[in-house]
């Protein structure tokens, strides 16, 4: 437990503690505001629409905020020194070695995916997906005030992505990943000699499929290749299937096929992360070997 507090109070980890508290606070805060707006049927902000002069009313707030931020920053800088470790040495990899804290969510993804997905495709999709949000969210409601009732899907998906897939993974990557990138519960000692038995199997090799990924001579088993392709494409075909069922509803007509395709692709990819993580975790809890790949091809693995 003592070690956990040591890690928690390492100067470089302080931002994540801040992150944790501020994100929880602001989520709760926005939630209460949204609840209030939804309950009374009109946004609180609408009652505050009379104009006030920027000088002094807004400038005053900005000035106070500046003073507060500077005070915190100066105190923080006086009390805690930024870390400076040993000189760079390329032959000696520290254990564990971690990316900057804001990339730890992505580094955590590296446990579950090959680098080309976790390190390149996922970040690009996050950026492109974020940029696409204003153009795929055609719901005109909820513009300029807190609400949940009027845009449940949007708020839920974004909060899931931000709170779980981004912030929670940063937290796990910082505090619960120890030497060898092994998972340690809070309070467990970070034992550098701890060896986790991680014999990987591929999804096709699991019960009840039992299709070996590789032939005895090391070449790829075509059956496993096809099985993997069916799994991946089957997962993504959930999008078109849902479209076929709902395409005649007013909402879908307004959304249009292009927007729908983008939304469903991004959404399924997001859920795919979860699926892959669960494929790794559930067998571990059941005492089986965790899944490494769903689809193995000669060029890339998923």
């Amino acid at each position: 437990m003592q070690q956990f507090f040591e890690i928690l109070t390492k100067p470089d980890n302080l931002p994540i503690v801040f992150l944790l508290f501020s994100v929880i606070f602001f989520t709760w805060f926005a939630w209460t505001k949204a609840k209030k707006n939804d309950a009374q049927g009109y946004p609180v902000e609408a009652t505050l629409d009379d104009k006030v002069q920027v000088w002094p009313y807004l400038v005053r707030v900005e000035f106070l905020a500046t003073i507060a931020v500077m005070a915190v920053l100066v105190i923080w800088s006086i009390t805690l020194d930024a870390p400076l470790e040993e000189p760079a040495n390329r032959a000696l990899t520290p254990n564990p070695s971690k990316a900057p804290w804001y990339f730890l969510g992505l580094q955590e993804m590296l446990v579950y995916f090959d680098p080309w997905i976790a390190g390149v495709v996922l970040p690009s999709l996050i950026i492109v997906g974020l940029m696409a949000i204003p153009y795929i969210d055609i719901n005109p409601k909820g513009n300029g005030y807190y609400t949940f009732k009027e845009r449940k899907f949007a708020v839920l998906v974004f909060s899931f992505g931000f709170l779980i897939l981004w912030c929670l993974l940063i937290f796990i990557g910082t505090f619960l990943r120890g030497p060898g990138w092994n998972f340690f519960m809070p309070g467990e000692k970070w034992d550098p000699h701890f060896v986790a038995v991680l014999t990987n199997v591929d999804f096709s090799e699991m019960w009840p499929f039992n299709i070996a990924t590789r032939m005895p001579d090391g070449s790829l088993n075509p059956a496993a290749f096809i099985f993997g392709a069916v799994c991946v494409f089957g997962f993504y075909s959930l999008g078109p299937l849902y479209w076929l069922r709902k395409r005649n509803t007013d909402f879908m007509k307004k959304l249009g096929l292009v927007r729908y395709a983008i939304v469903s692709f991004l959404f399924l990819t997001m859920m795919g992360l979860l699926v892959k993580i669960l494929l790794r975790l559930i067998p571990t809890f059941l005492g089986m070997n965790p899944v490494k790949y769903v689809w193995v091809t000669p060029w890339f693995n998923v």
Binding site: N89, K98, W116
Partner: peptide, 20 residues
């Protein structure tokens, strides 16, 4: 240019090796 720096950046930039 300390250990923290070089390894964080090594891990970070090595992902670029895997760019499709």
């Amino acid at each position: 240019w300390d250990q923290l720096a070089i390894w964080a950046v090594t891990v970070g930039t090595n992902m670029a090796r895997a760019t499709p």
